[in-house]
């Protein structure tokens, strides 16, 4: 059961990721990316990381992707102004590198039958993450809020500037 779900969602995530890269229209890419994020959230659920899965949907699918969609629609580029999908020499090298790396990885990381070690009961619980987040990593946590603040101010500043 779990294995079937794992391969189902993995196939979905990989297929959608391919769709993002291969589709010319950015709106379609964005929809595919949302599908990929959602499939990944399901994989996170299979890993018993409930809280992270929910946050994944909330942050990525709910916020980041809507932002992408919003910007694409504000620009609303006509079909002929979209950058083409044709492959130059440099880019062909990129694809070749990707193919070689894929072969290498397939040999190196090919899935084995072994399962996970037994995990603590409270693994997916919110408290399990909250503890270290507010104790050992309190400084990093506070710094991320600074990152977000800089992000907000920077985005407003950049977007409001008259070209």
């Amino acid at each position: 059961m779990q294995v079937a779900f794992f391969w189902l969602f993995s196939a979905l995530a990989v297929g959608c990721a391919l769709g993002v890269v291969l589709k010319k229209n950015p709106v379609v890419s964005a929809v595919f990316l949302m599908g990929s994020m959602f499939a990944l959230a399901c994989l996170f659920l299979l890993l018993d990381a409930h809280f992270i899965a929910v946050i994944q949907v909330l942050v990525y699918a709910g916020a980041v992707m809507v932002l992408f969609g919003f910007i694409i629609m504000i620009l609303n580029l006509p079909q002929e102004e979209l950058p083409p999908l044709t492959l130059g020499v440099t880019r062909a090298w990129g694809v070749a590198f990707g193919a070689v790396a894929l072969l290498f990885l397939a040999g190196k990381f090919f899935p084995t039958k072994e399962g996970f070690m037994p995990t603590p009961q409270e693994f997916g619980d919110v408290r399990f993450i909250a503890g270290p987040l507010f104790k050992e990593y309190a400084l990093a946590f506070e710094l991320t809020s600074l990152v977000l603040l800089v992000g907000v101010v920077g985005a407003v500043l950049l977007a409001k500037r008259k070209a």
Partner: peptide, 13 residues
């Protein structure tokens, strides 16, 4: 167990 967050996550979709 993260019910409240789930509600907001899904409804944001």
């Amino acid at each position: 167990n993260a019910g409240v967050v789930l509600v907001f996550a899904i409804s944001s979709l």
